[in-house]
């Protein structure tokens, strides 16, 4: 029963991070491949997210906007995103170390973050966020993220594979499409 409560909470809170287009759904799929591992599937209609988010008044979340520090470790996020927005397709960060390869780039209207781990050959992280969604997310004041605007932008964007994380024992996928199942 505790899980049902957690599931309900996930359902309502995930709504905050979904986007809303006509019959568009945000999907989260987590599979733990270990023996006896857990699997989690969450399917949230983006319309639900768009309507519920502004009604949640929590410590840092209010009217669909979440408070953050204006600068993270000395980096002005808004200025950085402004620079990325105006720049053409480009590689912004490439880190090649014996243990890890990291790439941050802008390509065809998407912000891409890729991480490959050399220690675990199967470990990889791919984050692909439409620039329009990033713009919407940072469209508010300097110290806040506008989740509702991001949801609307995501809704208008169409199908998108947002996050894929894989390693030896688990797989995580977050994506948006017009299906109401994660199969």
């Amino acid at each position: 029963m505790r899980r049902a409560l957690v599931g309900s909470a996930v359902l309502f809170l995930t709504a905050g991070f979904a986007a809303a287009a006509q019959d568009r759904w945000l999907h989260v799929k987590v599979v733990d491949a270990a023996k006896g591992g857990e699997s989690v599937n969450v399917n949230v209609p983006l319309d639900l997210a768009e309507k519920v988010l502004p009604t949640i008044q929590a410590e840092k979340l209010s009217h669909g906007k979440i408070k953050i520090g204006g600068e993270i470790e000395g980096v002005d996020i808004h200025a950085l995103l402004g620079a990325i927005r105006t720049a053409g397709d480009n590689e912004f960060v490439t880190v090649n170390s014996p243990k890890q390869h990291v790439r941050v780039a802008k390509s065809r209207g998407y912000l891409l973050v890729q991480v490959r781990d050399e220690d675990q050959k199967s470990a990889k992280v791919d984050i692909t966020v439409p620039i329009s969604v990033v713009d919407a997310l940072f469209s508010g004041a300097k110290d806040e993220l506008d989740l509702v605007s991001a949801v609307r932008a995501l809704k208008e964007h169409g199908d998108a594979q947002l996050v894929t994380v894989e390693d030896e024992s688990s797989k995580v996928r977050i994506w948006v499409d017009s299906k109401n199942t994660s199969e």
Binding site: G36, S39, V40, N41, V44, P45, L48, K51, T181
Partner: peptide, 18 residues
């Protein structure tokens, strides 16, 4: 959430299995 769920088609929103 109740109002929006009323408009949603039938679907499974959360499934957790272990």
């Amino acid at each position: 959430a109740g109002n929006e769920l009323a408009k949603c088609p039938d679907a499974r929103f959360v499934e957790i299995r272990d």
